[in-house]
Design a protein around this nucleic acid. Structure first.
Lengths: 194, 194, 194, 194
DNA sequence: AATGAATGAGACTTCATTCAT
DNA sequence: GATGAATGAAGTCTCATTCAT
């Protein structure tokens, strides 16, 4: 009944379970019970490793953040740039589509409470900055047209988030390659003809 | 102490207060108390007009939905199309920026509960269909390039939602005209140069 | 919309409606709304005629009490007594079976509140006394065997109430003549053979 | 302040307290507060053990049902039957008289709500069937006269319930032996003389 | 005499968190 | 380090009753 584990393993176990449960039920519908039941430990144990429900959610997001940004490869200016952009977009889309719990982040992480919003700000600040850096580099290389990089970064974020969000809402899967195609077309030449 | 009002006025009063409170605190942080305290009536009165917290949220969204879509003007093909598109985009952006509670819808309405998600689905189905219709018309007119209208509609939604969401997150205001400019540029010719 | 009635008529109308609704839904499930909706008047009007839900229930019971006891015919000792007993039993059974709201009285009137219990006590005191009087008369006539008339009165009450209660519980109707037969057999010679 | 108990004990404690409170106040007048105050634990603790007020009432009834039916001894046909019947009747009467909360069941359990009525139906179905079985056996042994066993079972139920109910109503105690005497006399030879 | 909007106490219930073991 | 019973604040919602009109 009592299962003693080295702290690191127990923590990892709880983190994994939390990620799965948050992904399945969403933040608000998830109870601590759902997490500890999945792990097979007690409520008390959970609180030995995390201070609160929000904290474990934060921890889940943090581990994810690393995984998502890890798939991005820096552009090598000596090689064909468009194909590298395409590859990056595809990797990112695949990455966030695969990460079910991101959908939760994208759709209901806001408004949990004041500290939760702070967490969210940090998350998005990081993401936005990365995108802005990439955009500025592109502008310097003459690949990206001029414009307010912050607004553009938000727009790009929206392009990536919304399909994920909508797909979750309807419980559908999205054809990644089709989506990547549309995104690239949008980025490269917009929506209008001619 | 007791303030008697015609039902329509009381309902409107409650609706307005609800909208304001939801906008300020978000859905989950809002309690019925916050709403009735603002109106200056009793809990019971609230429940004479709405069956539940979710229902009043739904009602708020419904009134908003009308206001937002109301600003869209149908395109007149005998006149200059790009400028009409620009005007519509600007009106929409202004509309949703002005509507604080939309930020709540955009950021935390998901995951309330099963019926709440159904409500959300209806909301987004409606919006997506409208956009798709517009896109298909544009395609027939030769103004919009080919592509999966559903995916494109989602992308457009994302372009509109994300800046609103981000602005709320940081408690900032966005320069509408700058944003409209970037959006139009994105739509008309993408992000990449040449 | 506004329907002005002489007080007596309005009161009678409310009383009739209350009786019907209590009979259908039971005391606890009945709301003032159910009563006034049936009458087609406002809540306020109801409270012009009755002080409370319990009071209208009391009034309903009172009118009923009269109707039920009214069917009992005094025994005429110069005529055949058993057949008069049979006739009375049959009339009583028919009377209480017909009076749907009696089932409510029999099954859930207790425990409403302190005053409600007082009301119930009065109701049953009256009934018990009537039965005891009849029993004592019977004993003096040598028709009824000796015994504690109070306990016997309760037993008779139980014999009358329980079938009504059970029938309501299962939503069934009872064959009155069969029931009367069994009751008379029980009264006249008990349950055991020989 | 915090009192930790093994679940079985806590549950038993809550059950005992519930039984006492229901017996004292009746179902409708009883609040969860009354129960937990008596136990000296928190509302939350109550809900760790029972899902609802109705459920704890059901649990109380269930434990009681067992106690009451447990006192009945099967008739041994090789021994004197009437005295065994007398003993059983006496044990049953004593059993239900001792069980204060049965008075609540007998007087106000109906009409709580749809599920409550279902519970009641099950309770009475069980009781009625037991009695019917006993009656049929008696008929086969030639001890009980012919008759509709269901109606007779209801009559017997009524004979047992009503004195209990009346005693509660007046806050009186009943002389059990006198009652048993009257019941047996009624059963064996009815109410009428000769 | 009639209306019906307003009231508010109090009911039941949930669940993140604590802490004695 | 682990347990899980206990907590209690906070939430939503009901409905008999009141009273301004």
């Amino acid at each position: 009944m009592r299962r003693v584990l080295p702290p690191d393993e127990r923590r990892a176990e709880l983190l994994t379970a939390s990620r799965a449960v948050f992904a399945e039920l969403g933040y608000h519908q998830t109870g601590i019970s759902d997490i500890v039941d999945r792990v097979g430990c007690s409520r008390g144990t959970f609180y030995n490793y995390f201070d609160s429900k929000r904290e474990v959610f934060a921890a889940v997001l943090e581990t994810m953040m690393g995984e998502v940004t890890g798939v991005i490869e820096p552009i090598d200016v000596t090689r064909d740039i468009p194909s590298q952009v395409r590859d990056n977009v595809e990797r990112i889309v695949r990455g966030i589509m695969a990460e079910d719990v991101l959908r939760v982040l994208f759709s209901e992480a806001a408004g949990i409470d004041a500290e939760g919003d702070e967490l969210l700000r940090e998350f998005y600040s990081g993401a936005t900055e990365r995108i802005e850096t990439a955009l500025r580099t592109g502008q310097q290389l003459g690949v990206v047209r001029d414009g307010d990089t912050r607004l553009l970064a938000w727009c790009l974020l929206g392009l990536l988030k919304e399909p994920v969000f909508q797909a979750r809402l309807y419980g559908e899967d999205v054809a990644v390659s089709a989506l990547v195609g549309e995104l690239l077309a949008l980025i490269s030449s917009g929506l209008l003809r001619g």
